[in-house]
């Protein structure tokens, strides 16, 4: 089943690269959903079936749909693709990819040493996750509700359409 891991990893990496190089936002979103789905498969293989399901339901399902909504509300047409093409400047890419490449190489050197032996993955079941979530992490859950409240109030305040602009 290891080949399945490498297949999913390859798909995830390919789709992610496609996301950041697309000119059309909707195409990028579709690649993003693909990347998230293959990541979900990787989570499953790593013994986290609960997270795999959430990745599909919440990330690919809810958060990406939010993006689609905004694209539709903004009604971004072909002119934005043209604009993107103008911004798509190879020289900026070259320099930044080089810098990021250095970071990646450093990370890989540090990570490669880590665990050369394949580990027998033991599944951590949703049962265990829930027990932990509502046991030691109870305060975290309560605080996360405050985090979401801040997001809710903020999105409401910023997104609200005003009837009239204030007098200057």
């Amino acid at each position: 089943m290891v080949w399945l891991f490498y297949l999913a990893a390859a798909v995830a990496l390919f789709c992610t690269v496609m996301v950041i190089t697309r000119l059309n936002a909707v195409h990028a979103l579709l690649y993003m959903v693909m990347a998230l789905l293959s990541l979900a498969l990787i989570f499953f293989l790593l013994g986290a079936p609960f997270i795999a399901a959430l990745e599909v339901i919440v990330y690919a399902g809810a958060i990406m749909v939010l993006f689609v909504f905004v694209i539709m509300m903004l009604n971004i047409g072909p002119q934005s693709v043209d604009q993107e093409r103008r911004w798509f400047n190879l020289s900026t890419w070259r320099g930044l990819v080089f810098i990021a490449g250095i970071l990646l190489i450093e990370l890989i050197i540090a990570l490669r040493l880590g665990f050369p032996e394949p580990l027998d993955v033991t599944e951590v079941t949703p049962h265990q996750v829930s027990l932990s979530l509502f046991g030691p992490y109870l305060l975290g859950v309560e605080l996360a509700s405050m985090l979401l409240l801040a997001g809710l109030v903020g999105a409401y305040h910023l997104g609200r359409r005003e009837q009239e602009r204030p007098k200057k």
Binding site: M1, A9, I42, G47, A100, G114, P116, P118, E123
Partner: peptide, 29 residues
């Protein structure tokens, strides 16, 4: 379950992270 080489999974996460970083740096939209 299956045996997955953990360092490869970590390297995958580092790669995805870097790709995201590149996207953040180069895109203006």
């Amino acid at each position: 379950m299956t045996a997955i080489p953990l360092n490869h999974a970590l390297i995958l996460s580092a790669m995805l992270f870097t790709v995201g970083l590149v996207g953040l740096l180069v895109r203006r939209n």
